[in-house]
Design a protein around this nucleic acid. Structure first.
Lengths: 264, 264
DNA sequence: ATTTAATGAGTCAATTTGACTCAAAAATAG
DNA sequence: CTATTTTTGAGTCAAATTGACTCATTAAAT
């Protein structure tokens, strides 16, 4: 793809790299694990990019402007990908191996002769340290946008994240671990679920995060016992007995956090 | 202090900055919250440095070499300060405000005329992003070493960390929060306590981390019920009835992690 | 009408928790 | 030496929580 004449693309990339050289903090990148919950499975937002002959799947990412707060940079990156403002973000890891670079894993893919100027190669071969952030979004409210130079943006199942390029599968693993640890301390489910949801939905989410099955009657008793949920209707869409619809009672998170159990 | 002729110091600093310019990743720094436990209180290791007229207390920190893994850089920094190898480290936060620089909080302290060359001012005024790491050490095994250009290295109580310079008090706060959340998931007490310790010691540590009191008989029952501790003697040093000495039974951490309670 | 899938509700013994009291061991004061 | 104080180990008991269940209800499919 890149080998035959999309000079235009390389020209754009060169310009983009030039802007980055001028305005961005060198050797520092951001990557975001944007999680959603659909079809009772955790999903992660990825970008498809074709730099060599094979397409690659990558986590959304970007760079930090010299006059930009890191947190604002992350917000900007998430906004570009999801269109959403004000999504809570958590930094959960740093990837800083000395050998980390785009080119390390691209060797053989990029053909220098076609249009990759020196400035681009400099950028691609440079050692980068990546700050990893986690964002939880309501799947149904998000329409993923491909950002500049990405062919495509899509959701993939969290279990399929092993197919990502570079060390991004490790980032997803780390994010998953972080999410599990964060469960008792922060509102998580309320960010991943739509405004109204069924208890089986909530249970499936908790099971996905904990990566183990939970007894249904006991889960119901425990969750309803917290007083975090308010019944708001019925869901008559599925097969079988209709499930009750619930909403989170706003502002009761903090109390639960102290109780050292699920945090929603 | 800095105003009158310690040209030597400034010369050393200039050389140091030059080396950093050549070898270190630009605009990226490391800070370490090194925690110990003594006198039944959490302590944090700090460096005293005098750049202007007033002395400042700072968390141990440093920079990342171009060919150095970030994790190795942190290990190096902790080693320089504590003399200990192989201390487990956890990255827990990133401080990345666009206005972060040494000079921001030094304004008025540094007198340019005396010896602070342009290269040094460039370094001091540069916007830095800091990666924060947490290290837990056995207080009794550590003798703090002042690193290059630091007058002094010492322990201060965790509650006194508000007196640190720059945004380092915020780093300590964040570290404390991280520690609390990490309790159920990682061996913490076994890293902070000496090889043998009493149950009241362990309880005081847990209370310091949780920042609340715990019922003594119930704490004993719960901890001993886990089978994590092995009685190894008696402590006859204090007043009152002698306390039994315990050691952690090695290799039983992982099981406890699943039980979602204290992790030692 | 019957079966099946999916969900809400309830039971009950075992375990854990929270709030206690009591006993033991050593330093200290009289 | 004896009594008191301090500190720690051990035990009690009711209440709450948990884990493993069964049963009942509702709606779609046959």
């Amino acid at each position: 793809m890149a080998s035959d004449g999309n000079q235009e693309i390389w020209k754009d990339i060169r310009k983009y790299v030039h802007v980055l050289e001028e305005n961005a903090i060198s050797q520092l990148s951001i990557n975001c694990v944007i999680l959603g919950f659909d079809d009772r499975n955790l999903q992660v937002a990825v970008n498809r990019v074709q730099i060599g002959t094979h397409p690659m799947l990558l986590l959304p990412g970007g760079y930090v402007g010299q006059r930009e707060n890191v947190s604002d940079a992350v917000r900007r990156i998430v906004r570009e990908c999801t269109g959403m403002e004000d999504i809570p973000l958590r930094q959960f890891d740093v990837f800083g191996s000395a050998s980390r670079s785009f080119f390390q894993d691209l060797a053989g893919e990029v053909e220098l002769s076609t249009g990759a100027a020196k400035s681009i190669m400099d950028w691609l071969t440079r050692r980068f340290i990546s700050l990893c952030y986690l964002a939880l979004v309501d799947f149904r409210e998000i329409a993923l946008h491909p950002t500049e130079f990405y062919d495509d943006a899509r959701w993939i199942g969290l279990d399929e994240a092993g197919c990502l390029a570079l060390d991004h599968p490790d980032m997803v693993r780390s994010a998953r671990e972080y999410l599990r640890k964060e469960m008792p301390h922060a509102p998580i489910a309320s960010r991943l679920l739509p405004d109204t949801f069924t208890l089986p939905d909530l249970q499936a989410l908790v099971e996905a995060i904990l990566d183990r099955r939970v007894d249904r009657p006991n889960f119901r008793r425990k969750i309803l016992g917290t007083g975090l949920l308010r019944k708001v209707g019925q869901d008559r869409s599925g097969i079988g007995r209709p499930a009750d619809l619930y909403s989170f009672v706003h502002g009761r998170h903090t109390a639960l956090v102290e109780d050292f159990r699920f945090g929603f």
